[in-house]
């Protein structure tokens, strides 16, 4: 089915990284991202150190470089924007072959490229080792407002249901010879999207009735959060704190 698979990010495994509680991994991820973003763009060696930290975490999680590389492709459209910076940037210019490039623009492009890629790679390690429901309970444990984790939870739960309905509507249209090629032929598709919106709204009402029927009174019970031991925190934060220390030295020095 063409519908998105809400759990496609997760890779089954029994590594130590998989076993860590989700909220611990989220804190570790946050530290790595802040360290990467805070590192001055000229300190190329420090970025290499960050990369080593992330590669080490991926190795502990039994994730291959090829897998991480494949997942990084999702960042490509954003990085494509960075390629433009050397051409449109102002200030000093440097001539490379037939091209005149902005020095500031080149640094800007490098900064977007390296920071974006490293932060994304760290996120890939966490999302590939943590199921989505565990990530949501982890966020709840970190005191992220309940309303946000609830909305995200319902989104995860119903994304496939709604994508499945959309897919069936498209199949039903195709079965009657509908094959839009141009935007102005998309009226039927747009109408079905509207119908889907109404149906989703009605489903929302039925789900709410089902929740009320089981005693819901405006607050979801907090279920399934696992407690973290000191050893969990130490194991999870060892590598991110190395990255943070490297970033701190780079900022001070």
């Amino acid at each position: 089915m063409s519908a998105g698979h809400a759990h496609a990010l997760y890779v089954h495994g029994d590594s130590r990284v998989h076993a860590l509680p989700a909220h611990v991994k989220l804190v570790a991820l946050l530290i790595v991202i802040v360290a990467v973003v805070a590192t001055p763009r000229e300190r190329v060696g420090v970025f290499a150190a960050h990369a080593v930290v992330i590669i080490a975490a991926a190795a502990c999680a039994h994730l291959s470089p090829r897998f991480i590389g494949g997942r990084l492709l999702i960042g490509a459209p954003f990085l494509a924007f960075a390629v433009l910076l050397p051409f449109v940037g102002g200030g000093d210019r440097v001539v490379v072959g037939a091209l005149s490039l902005s020095v500031g623009g080149l640094w800007g492009a490098w900064s977007v490229l390296v920071k974006g890629t490293l932060a994304l790679a760290a996120s890939v390690v966490v999302t590939a080792t943590t199921p989505v429901p565990a990530l949501l309970t982890g966020l709840g444990r970190l005191r992220v407002p309940v309303v946000i984790t609830e909305i995200a939870g319902f989104m995860v739960r119903y994304l496939e249901v709604i994508a499945g309905e959309m897919h069936r509507a498209k199949v039903a249209m195709a079965a009657r010879g509908y094959q839009p090629r141009w935007a102005w032929q998309g009226t039927a598709l747009a109408t079905s999207a509207g119908a889907l919106f109404i149906r989703s709204h009605e489903r929302g009402e039925r789900v709410y009735d089902a929740m009320l029927s089981r005693g819901y009174q405006g607050r979801l019970p907090q279920l399934g959060a696992t407690a973290a031991t000191r050893a969990d925190w130490a194991r999870a934060l060892a590598l991110p704190l190395c990255a943070a220390a490297a970033a701190a030295l780079a900022v001070i020095g």
Binding site: V132, G215, L223
Partner: peptide, 26 residues
């Protein structure tokens, strides 16, 4: 205890465990 016609309306949590726990936890 009402079991609704469409289980996708009845099962709204992200895992079966959380869904079955929802009622008693309330």
């Amino acid at each position: 205890g009402i079991v609704f016609q469409d289980p996708d309306d009845q099962l709204f949590m992200t895992t079966v465990r959380q869904d079955v726990a929802f009622g008693p936890a309330n």
